[in-house]
């Protein structure tokens, strides 16, 4: 009886597994298929030589890393200020989290589009990076974490004559490493996959990121499905790698409710 249940359970798990993984498997398989039918890497060499995928990859990586670094720094600063009651009106600031969660991005995108044009930042790295350097969900994640740390450490350091900066970055920040790791991974993954803002705020190939490039390539006559899937694989692999390495932090982060897709 027990074994029958187990077999049934594994059978159900297996069927779901196939359903969940097949589309991605299909993507990998097609990207490796040559026009003659055999296995090949030619689709990858093609998209890198004829379609500037190197550039898109670089843009995605650059924007992703800068935004992640910005979030580590700024969310930490803001979260710390909140946790140590150096800023009043915590409740109001908590409502900004709700606003950012609830306001549909399309309502702000037209003004941001006009704003970026007026500032001369349309179609530049600044347009891709500036709006995302800090996010309120990250701030509250750090705030939560810092509140669990004892204040005595900071006070002791202050008595020893350590300056504000030193206390902040040499003493508190290293202690926050677990929370910052969760934050960094989630920000990077969200940013890497983001489409709408990069799509609307840039136009030239020089600043195009991978998701935008992929969406636009579908409309080109000169690229076939295997090449398109090769491009998709390029976009998926870094995230997959991050996921496999940091699985535990990612799952912890999501269950902490700190993930906005």
């Amino acid at each position: 009886m027990m074994t029958f249940r187990r077999i049934l359970k594994y059978f159900i798990l297996g069927v779901i597994f196939v359903i969940m993984v097949f589309p991605l498997f299909w993507m990998f398989a097609l990207s490796l298929k040559s026009s003659g039918g055999g296995l090949t890497l030619e689709n990858f060499t093609y998209i890198f030589s004829a379609n500037k995928f190197g550039r898109y990859l670089f843009n995605s990586a650059l924007v992703g890393l800068v935004v992640t670094a910005g979030n580590i720094l700024f969310c930490f600063m803001c979260g710390y200020a909140l946790a140590r009651r150096r800023v009043i009106g915590e409740k109001i600031w908590f409502y900004t989290v709700l606003i950012v969660l609830m306001v549909p991005v399309h309502i702000v995108i037209i003004p941001i589009y006009i704003l970026m044009n007026k500032l001369g930042m349309y179609d530049s790295y600044a347009a891709l990076i500036l709006p995302w350097l800090v996010n309120p969900i990250g701030i509250f994640l750090i705030r939560q974490y810092v509140s669990t740390l004892p204040v005595s450490l900071e006070e002791a350091a202050r008595i020893d004559g350590a300056g504000e900066m030193r206390i902040l970055f040499k003493i508190v920040m290293p202690l926050c490493r677990p929370a910052l790791a969760i934050l960094a991974i989630q920000v990077f993954m969200t940013n890497w996959n983001s489409f709408l803002f990069p799509f609307i705020l840039t136009s030239s190939e020089q600043y195009r990121t991978l998701p935008v490039a992929l969406a636009l390539l579908l409309g080109y006559q000169s690229i076939n499905w295997s090449q398109l899937m090769a491009g998709s694989v390029v976009a998926v692999i870094p995230i997959l790698a991050v996921f496999l390495v940091f699985q535990k932090q990612i799952i912890a982060g999501i269950t902490a409710g700190a993930f906005k897709q």
Partner: peptide, 18 residues
């Protein structure tokens, strides 16, 4: 200056209007 078909039109419209 290179434009792309994806949104070259938008870019021209914005430039002219400003």
């Amino acid at each position: 200056v290179d434009l792309t078909w994806a949104d070259g039109h938008d870019k021209i419209a914005i430039a002219f209007s400003s």
